[in-house]
Amino acid sequence: MSGPRQGRLVDAYDLVIFDLDGVVYLIDEPIPGAVEAIGRLHDEGRSVSYATNNASRRAADVAELLTGMGVPAGADEVVTSAGAAAAVLAGRLAPGDRVLVVGADALRDEIGEVGLVPVGRADEEPVAVVQGYGPRVGWAELAEAALAVRAGAIWVATNTDRTLPSPRGPLPGNGSLVAVLRTALDRDPDIVVGKPAPGLFRTGAERVGASRPLVVGDRLDTDIEGAVRAGMDSLLVLTGVSDARELLGAPAERRPTFVGYDLRGLFDVDGVVRVPAGEPASGGWRVTGDGLRLDGSGSTLDALAALCAAAWSRSVAREVAPAAGSEPARAALRELGLTG
């Protein structure tokens, strides 16, 4: 952590809430160090929860996937946007009401389990449309949804993530598909259930009675903003979507408490830093000028914290391009992807 190292980050919290895609795995492949870090939490008897915007799997399926990767998990530890969307609709609609489902089978199953009737066509007169990510969603499903919403159906989106992380780079997420309907209908969804809304995080904390949870995510616009809305501390890991450049330009509602390379930062005091750095900047780094000139030397994460302190002190968040004033600074900026 910034300044004198204070001890293991995890020791300050009674629950760790993990995002999944980009934090624990990419698609179906575990991120290096993730299995070991979560296994260590289990070995120490610590509470964990998983909160995912991905509506293509049910909680039990997510738990099975994690267990198959070497991370023992139960369905009661998983909160999905599909389950949350079904619960929201069950609270607003009558049993037996029809809901047009755009998404994967998991979302359809969740709708059926709460006593609603999943349908696939607008002429079946659905009273609501629920839209979640599905790898096979296409024009036909989106067209039916548009017709149903125009006819008066409530429009619920499980989430609005523009992209999904993958080993090949970001791929279109549910937010990109929601944007298709937003363009066609010239309106926003009536309800967005998933992050950055705080509900998934609060549900995870309530299930175990946690009073001091830590949210771990890879996206500033969903995980970190959701943690801020929930009043929870957060750790941004640089294994998924958001990177150092995006972090420097983040508005106040999307700023994490800590940044780390990956989940090993939960235990490794040198693998995590509090942001922004305190004054004076820690680790021997100095940042001067409106152009964020980095001088001095120290750890790369401390350099990032010092840059955050300077960038966030500006009245308006904007694109930044730090400059190096020393060879160690050039090396740190290269490692952070802040050159070129």
Rank of each mutant, 00 (worst) to 15 (best):
G199R: 13
P189N: 06
G68Y: 08
V215C: 00
G231W: 15
R293A: 13
C308K: 11
A153G: 01
T239G: 07
I38M: 10
S176P: 07
A90N: 02
G231T: 09
V208T: 11
G240W: 10
E279Y: 06
Y50I: 04
P165R: 11
V79Y: 07
D295N: 13
R286G: 11
A104H: 01
G296A: 11
R40V: 03
E36D: 07
A51M: 09
D14E: 05
V23Y: 06
V156Q: 05
V88E: 15
Q131P: 06
R274P: 12
Q6Y: 10
E124C: 08
V272M: 03
N53S: 04
A151Y: 06
V23G: 03
T339G: 13
V269P: 12
G39L: 04
N159K: 10
P170F: 04
V237N: 03
R207S: 02
A128F: 02
V216L: 08
W155L: 07
R314L: 14
S2D: 08
V228N: 12
G134C: 01
E29H: 10
A51D: 04
G91P: 00
T183E: 14
M232V: 10
W312V: 05
G340C: 15
Y50T: 02
G217C: 04
D14I: 09
S313K: 13
T52F: 04
D76E: 13
S166G: 12
A197E: 15
V48T: 12
D161P: 01
Q6C: 08
L93F: 03
S297N: 15
G132Y: 05
G115N: 07
V16N: 10
V275I: 10
R293W: 05
T239M: 11
T67H: 08
P170S: 07
L142I: 08
T203E: 14
R207V: 08
A331M: 15
A157D: 00
G249Y: 04
A87N: 08
E113I: 15
S49N: 03
A277H: 05
G337H: 10
V10R: 11
K195N: 00
L116D: 02
V137T: 13
V215G: 02
T300H: 08
G271L: 01
P32N: 14
A51T: 12
F201G: 01
L100V: 00
D295K: 07
T160I: 13
V48K: 03
V71G: 06
P213L: 02
G217M: 00
R293M: 12
Q6L: 14
L292S: 15
V114L: 11
V178N: 03
P280Y: 10
D19E: 09
V24K: 01
P213N: 04
R136T: 14
D28Y: 00
G204M: 14
E279K: 02
P118Y: 00
